[in-house]
Design a protein around this nucleic acid. Sequence first.
DNA 1: CATATTTTGAGTTGCGCACCTCAAAATGCC
DNA 2: GGCATTTTGAGGTGCGCAACTCAAAATATG
Lengths: 352, 352
Amino acid sequence: MNNQASDAPLTLRDVAAAAGVSLATADRVVNGRPGVSAKTARKVHEAVQRLGFRPLAAAAELARARSWRFAVILPGGGNRFMMDIADNIRAQADWFRARRIGVEIVEADVFDADTLAAELATLPGRFDGVALVALDHPRIRAAIDDLVEGGMAVVTLVSDAPSSRRQHYVGIDNIAAGRTAGSLVGRFLGPPRAGEPGGAVGIITGSGSLRDHAERRFGFGQVLAEEYPHLTRLNPVEGRDDPERNRDLVRRMLADTPDLVAIYNTGEGSVGIGEALAEAGLTRKILCVGHELTPATRRMLLDGTFAALVAQDPGHEVRSMARVLHALVAGQEIVAAQEHIRVQVILRDNLP
Amino acid sequence: MNNQASDAPLTLRDVAAAAGVSLATADRVVNGRPGVSAKTARKVHEAVQRLGFRPLAAAAELARARSWRFAVILPGGGNRFMMDIADNIRAQADWFRARRIGVEIVEADVFDADTLAAELATLPGRFDGVALVALDHPRIRAAIDDLVEGGMAVVTLVSDAPSSRRQHYVGIDNIAAGRTAGSLVGRFLGPPRAGEPGGAVGIITGSGSLRDHAERRFGFGQVLAEEYPHLTRLNPVEGRDDPERNRDLVRRMLADTPDLVAIYNTGEGSVGIGEALAEAGLTRKILCVGHELTPATRRMLLDGTFAALVAQDPGHEVRSMARVLHALVAGQEIVAAQEHIRVQVILRDNLP
DNA sequence: CATATTTTGAGTTGCGCACCTCAAAATGCC
DNA sequence: GGCATTTTGAGGTGCGCAACTCAAAATATG
């Protein structure tokens, strides 16, 4: 175990000297410009390897002397998590500016494929890269492919469109997130008691059309079916991430399902669930697991309405998005390990 | 909601022009050099505010033209998590070099205050900053204070010494980590059944002398006492993070405690717990919760020996350490929100 | 008032690299 | 061999800032 000191500031000049070529030639090789014989290029590459040369990030960036414009397309409406994403982008305005990155947040109706596709079509020329909360829909896939075709860097954010040619997805594995929620529900409810039925689990989802929610439902159902077969799963009901709608859905669920023991919400608007339970005097009697840390879910985690949250960190996602887009447009390498977004489990005790 | 574009590259020159002073004066103000009247300084500051000027990171770094040397003091021995930290440091050698940062990993016996203090005393002159896994001991506190006094940037890593003058702690809130483990154990065991006693919970800890383990025991005990009073807590036993020792401890624990229902390990060497349970045919019968994701704990999570892990991400910690040390020596601001290290809960389903 | 002191402006240098031009040298081809 | 073509070297420029120097201007001091 030892050091990786690089006391000698080691510049491209040193590489050129070591390879026995001129600075200009070394520069051509390192930056992949033409007009160098294979033999010479090899000498330079060897010298780079041998000395362990890396261009100084600051100097490279400064010399490149160009700025980038990125668009981030987020769903409009009152979605708290998306507002967190936007807030994080704004909070890092300094970080972006210090790297000559201009970020424009574009609100769009991501649920309407035509609108979103039209919005995407306006981007070329105005932006170097785009991050979008993708609808997994043929029109959107085509629009994304067109952008990539035109040389734009495209990453999906939070909800993926894996069939498109987007270069990267910044977000969590939503099947794993759903499975995690399933395991929490299953374990927290405990093993079935002899002679008692397992009870019913209600599933509230935002919308059928975004891939992330669908994947969560899938993962959740998978785990419950495999490992907690004593639990009955109710059919998912759509609350469109709206608290009031969710409240009504839970009211009805409570009325219709006497043996309800748990509720899983794949999306937003969890506060409506808490309200319906409070009305019925069932707070903390029905196990609740939801997604994303917001002021509302934080409160309900603290008061015990929700037992756990499965979450992704919007700050991490924004930073990852920025790094990835920048690496894509600047032709740098993406360090996959660093860009993996974790599925977090948040209990009352490890609230950030 | 809208953009924060900075199309105009906005340089210090622009600030000087806006403030009606020369570039030199603007530079003096921005870099805090003397020889500027209060009135002029105010004009410049106002212009900076008004235009929203931030020095371009790359240019500033390049111009500063100096390199940094950091030491990272880690415990020797076979501690897997510490090896992960070291591996992460090595894996980011490129990142460090691209920022003119030389990192030297120093193995030390962090459990011996005199040795560690002596090691710390050798650092001034050789390094600009140091990150250390701190022993919370008066000698170490004094040694840290001496370093800080001498102008060195000091951050504690993984285990804190809050009474010292270290500028920053990179690591998780270990009380919260212990509480999280406590909640997981309590919830996973489920509510007490009528007529049945709650059972006993064994606690295995690494050592009494590192603060992190002590805090985890404290948090764990707190939650169990407050919320799961039906569970009996056995006295913590010290396994010094050693698998074999832990195996023996669990063998004895199983023999002595017929009503054992769960085991919590605050530290390393969880594999020994798994072995002892397997011998006794009690795998998955006794609930186990441990710390840190390693190849061994990953395996035991997958096979069900462990139900959950409470973990911190060594990659995040290394990156945070690097950013913080760099910010400290370069006199830049630390973005607290970005440097918060999360207490992660890892189940089989959200394994990264 | 003259003098000392402080403040400000103007300018230079260099950080390491990307990107460019132009000429010289080496190589290929007939 | 003479020619065109490719390869290489030498050198310059600018990115934006930090950190200087030196002189001029403004202000304070006696």
